[in-house]
Design a protein around this nucleic acid. Sequence first.
DNA 1: ATAAGTGCAAATCTTTTGCAAGTGC
DNA 2: GCACTTGCAAAAGATTTGCACTTAT
Lengths: 152, 152
Amino acid sequence: MPDNSINHYHRLIQELRARGFRITTPRCWTLRVLSEQSGHMTSEQVYQSLHEYDIQVDEATVYRTLQWLADNRIVTRTNLGLGADVFSLYHEPHHHLVCLNCRATIEIDDSVFADLRSDLRKAHGFVPQMDHFAIFGLCKLCQSQATDQAAD
Amino acid sequence: MPDNSINHYHRLIQELRARGFRITTPRCWTLRVLSEQSGHMTSEQVYQSLHEYDIQVDEATVYRTLQWLADNRIVTRTNLGLGADVFSLYHEPHHHLVCLNCRATIEIDDSVFADLRSDLRKAHGFVPQMDHFAIFGLCKLCQSQATDQAAD
DNA sequence: ATAAGTGCAAATCTTTTGCAAGTGC
DNA sequence: GCACTTGCAAAAGATTTGCACTTAT
């Protein structure tokens, strides 16, 4: 486990303890595997990872743990249109471009939403909680393929 | 059925026929109920509406029909975070602000995404297909309630 | 006539839940 | 000790699918 992952993981545990939450095996290890994978995991994937560490945790418990972490804003839960929701640590907000054709996902910075955020607030008094967003469309490559096909 | 709904409905049928698709009872009536309801319907709601017209169509067929309409870009399919996906006619692109607290949804114009669209294209060569989008957050009212509670 | 669409029933997949037993503090 | 968590099994909800039958063209 890389140093920064370990540190991040320990910081999270401390934070939960400080907030008065109980530290249990499923919670510890769920956070561990999420810290290692900088990416996004389905509940199923978290479950598999735990078992690779020989940590026997029930699948329902993984769901409950992830849901609980999401409720406490430790992780985000996102529907990337891939069937199951994906979960990831909620540190720096970031978002995804998902190609409808090849399913590639491009990670993008939160800053692209700065203007949109202030527009929505001004126009509708609405404060978006865009922690983790998925935008569907066509990636560069798949666009050119589409163009090629049209030219046939 | 208001005139504009009827017209829109007939136009859609013509378009499908022109594209060489078969016009069947489930397709006709699904488009009819979607035309009447300017809003968004779950598959279940479409199913119920059909039965209110005494049109006996199987629930699986409603799913297949809606999926087919979505594949052919006649309707959009969106996950508003309410359990079931919602479907609506794909005429003018529009989007939704969904309040995480009270579940109110505010319909917003597509124009708010104009800048975002061009940014994403410039920065990542990505062309978003944001036909029908859901942004979660807190509405004006629920924000002030949250503030009130914090003040208690 | 025939390819496409539908009804029916059952399966699949994701997620949630009730309850008894276990565990952190 | 006691409230909070978990395991287990089962349910719930959304959506898909296999297959024989029907229908639009």
